[in-house]
């Protein structure tokens, strides 16, 4: 092999090596994919690189991710937009009539849910106050709004508020330990609705949550359990 051929082969090797990440994620074009396939047959180094990149790709996609419900975040964006528009009334004077779009019904549902979110936020505050005075033997709490103000999902067993400093990893660990999963939230008040992932009694899950310093508030929404009942 002369030096020209050798140089061309080295150039092709570098070009193929650079394409490996997109070969791994499947976004590479058909023509380039065939080029990579042909090169891999005769290049052990690129095959090793491919194996490494596949491990990295799998590792980066294997971690569990907490899913967020966007309603509360969207409300905060709306509030910012409202603030901007009220500060510049001229700009707000020409709102688009706009078509409602395919998911307008979904949006209307979201607005209704947002109203419910506010009710839950207020009810959680009421619950917090009720818990504060519970030891002093206060009268029947007005807490029932926690379970009644917002539509309760059929599988919801607990509502909880976590420390703002909790990380995703910590949150997932807390939920795993308590045998719970998030079905919605966080609301504007930071409230998560939780469902059970095991047959563990709700009381036991509740006790684990309440024992954790990262949990600010946890209450059962199960019918028949009184608010503040000690598990």
């Amino acid at each position: 092999m002369n030096s020209t051929n050798h140089g061309a082969a080295a150039g092709e090797h570098r070009a193929i090596s650079a394409l490996i990440p997109w070969y791994v994620n499947g976004s590479i074009g058909e023509q380039e994919r065939q080029r990579v396939d042909a090169h891999l047959l005769g290049c052990a180094q690129c095959r090793d690189e491919l194996a490494l990149e596949r491990r990295v790709y799998q590792g980066m996609n294997a971690e569990t991710t907490v899913e967020y419900m966007p309603a509360a975040s969207l409300k905060r964006l709306q509030a910012r937009l409202d603030g901007i528009e009220s500060a510049a009334p001229a700009a707000a004077a020409a709102p688009g009539s706009g078509k409602p779009g395919r998911r307008s019904l979904q949006w209307q549902g979201l607005m209704a849910a947002s109203v419910a979110v506010m009710a839950v936020a207020l009810s959680v505050l009421a619950a917090d106050r009720w818990m504060h005075f519970h030891g002093a033997g206060s009268a029947q709490p007005e807490y029932h709004t926690v379970t009644n103000a917002a539509a309760r999902a059929p599988d919801e067993v607990i509502r909880a508020v976590f420390s703002p400093a909790v990380t995703l990893v910590e949150l997932q660990a807390i939920l795993d330990e308590a045998g719970l999963r998030i079905i919605s939230g966080p609301t504007e008040a930071g409230v998560y609705s939780l469902a059970a992932t095991s047959r563990r009694p709700v009381n036991a899950s509740l006790a684990l949550l309440r024992a954790n310093a990262r949990v600010r508030f946890a209450e059962s929404t199960q019918p028949g359990m009184r608010p503040g009942d000690s598990p």
Partner: peptide, 13 residues
């Protein structure tokens, strides 16, 4: 671009 907030919210979601 025409100022439709609902469209922005749909994109957001």
């Amino acid at each position: 671009a025409a100022g439709n907030r609902q469209a922005l919210e749909e994109l957001y979601l």
